[in-house]
């Protein structure tokens, strides 16, 4: 049915070897960033969005489910972590736990509703659910409405690592990103991931083979939401605020755009896409609303001419799976 990833190769030993090589290269490159003088804040922000896009990609690329509301996990985890750190005065690790669990809970509730429809309806439902949440966060007092939660203390992770130091924070974020990335990678290549791909390709067939496809889809949705929430919790330490922007539908659109640019259903595509889009926003920040127009143009151009995305095209060219 789905033509989203027209040439995904089955996981062969060669594909896994290729992917591990690229992973080690990526990790090594990211590890030396603080030595190069590149502005670490930019890379940290991009890493949080990269993990978020990877979580989103788990649903669309391997489950065929396009969520147009993934910002709700980013924003929810952000608010929960920010509240836990600032108001309850919890330590960073507990703050991250609170945020991630919050997103997981949200994933359970919204997942039960959203997976009741497939395809295009699933996208509309997730969009509507995230808009519902946006209005709730706009009105509840603990989010401080338009102001958001600001000036969040960063604290000491496990009582040792001072997150107020940019280099320490950078490596903490990097470890979080790589951990989340590996978890997604492991999921994709597990029996669970294979069943997901089967559902994406032909759901009635998967049902006829005895799989309870709704359970698999729900589990994938919760996992994706939880990891997206983890990324949102990490982002709180980088941005030191949690605001309505993170729950708005434009943010959900950006997550979709990152994954589309990098390559839907590719392992590394969302990471590349996140860096491209975040870099673009940084350099074009002075152009005001034209950034929105440029994002729209990229959407249109990608869908019409560049559906495989950056990594998808490279993988296609070298006939590898990346």
């Amino acid at each position: 049915m789905s033509a989203l990833t027209d040439d995904t190769l089955p996981a062969s030993p060669r594909a896994v070897r290729d992917e591990m090589i690229v992973f080690v290269l990526m990790a090594a490159l990211l590890a030396i960033v603080p030595l190069t003088g590149i502005y670490p804040f930019f890379v940290m922000q991009a890493l949080c969005f990269a993990l978020l896009a990877c979580a989103f990609n788990l649903l669309i690329g391997y489950g065929g489910l396009l969520s147009f509301g993934h910002a709700m996990f980013l924003g929810t985890a952000g608010y929960f972590t920010a509240h836990a750190l600032k108001v309850w005065g919890l330590s960073p690790e507990l703050g991250i736990l609170v945020g991630t669990l919050g997103a997981a809970g949200l994933g359970v509730i919204t997942g039960v509703v959203a997976i009741r429809r497939q395809g295009i309806y699933f996208s509309m439902i997730t969009l509507a659910l995230s808009q519902l949440l946006y209005f709730i966060y706009l009105q509840t007092p603990f989010t401080h409405g338009e102001d958001g939660i600001q000036g969040i203390p960063q604290g000491y992770l496990f009582g040792i690592f001072n997150l107020a130091k940019p280099t320490v924070l950078y490596y903490v974020i990097l470890v979080g990103f790589l951990g989340g990335f590996l978890l997604i990678y492991r999921t994709i290549n597990s029996p669970f991931g294979e069943v997901l791909k089967a559902i994406r390709e032909n759901e009635p067939r998967a049902i006829s083979l005895g799989y309870k496809t709704d359970h698999y889809k729900l589990l994938a949705f919760i996992l994706s939401g939880t990891i997206a929430g983890f990324a949102g919790s990490l982002k709180v330490f980088v941005a030191q605020n949690a605001s309505l922007t993170d729950v708005h539908w434009t943010m959900s659109g950006e997550i979709v755009l990152m994954t589309l640019v990098g390559g839907l259903g590719t392992v590394f595509g969302p990471v590349v896409g996140a860096f491209v889009i975040i870099a673009m926003q940084q350099y074009l920040a002075g152009f005001g609303q034209w950034v929105t127009v440029i994002q729209g143009v990229i959407f249109v151009a990608c869908v019409l001419t560049f559906r495989r995305g950056v990594i998808g095209e490279i993988a296609h060219f070298f006939r590898r799976s990346l």
Partner: peptide, 15 residues
């Protein structure tokens, strides 16, 4: 896939 139509028209809306 239907989803591409959604993505394309979303891009048009942004523009």
């Amino acid at each position: 896939d239907h989803l591409y139509g959604l993505l394309l028209t979303f891009g048009i809306a942004l523009i």
